[in-house]
Amino acid sequence: MGPGIEVGQVPRAALPINPAFQWSVGNWMDHFYDGLKEGKLLASKCPGCARVYLPPRMICERCFTKCEEWVELPETGTVESYTVAHVKVGANGEFEELPQPEVIALVKQDGADTCVAARLQGGSASVGMKVKVVIDPEAESFVNMLAGYRPAE
């Protein structure tokens, strides 16, 4: 500011307004959720390059082809990577300490070419370990029907 005008600490303003959204998931994801409801893991498959997408995608990113084939995947998969989370992001966008650390894993389901990010139960994890999917058709929110993974052994 110019001479004679002291702003001091720059003032702030806020508003308690949170714009809401409702995203249609599309038919591919809808079919995926239908499958989970029946305890099945449904993935979409590219008819061109045979790439298998889980979660399913309508279009193969590599071939630009519609993935109109569906495959049911086995319950087993492999941990591609993981992190032990000591915090989570709270509603206000800051880290909050978790009471108990939890494992977030990237799991490649057997037969799939993409990964799912999910909680891994059991405390310990390693890259390459075999895991089994945990499906909860009764989950409160359908997005959590794929509840997570547990060690295969």
Partner: peptide
């Protein structure tokens, strides 16, 4: 928004940790 965002596990830091480990 149709999957990962709903599950609140991925953020820039947790994603980076997954990448770091890989």
């Amino acid at each position: 928004p149709t999957f990962d965002r709903q599950r609140w596990l991925l953020n820039e830091a947790s994603a980076a940790a997954l990448q770091a480990r890989a």
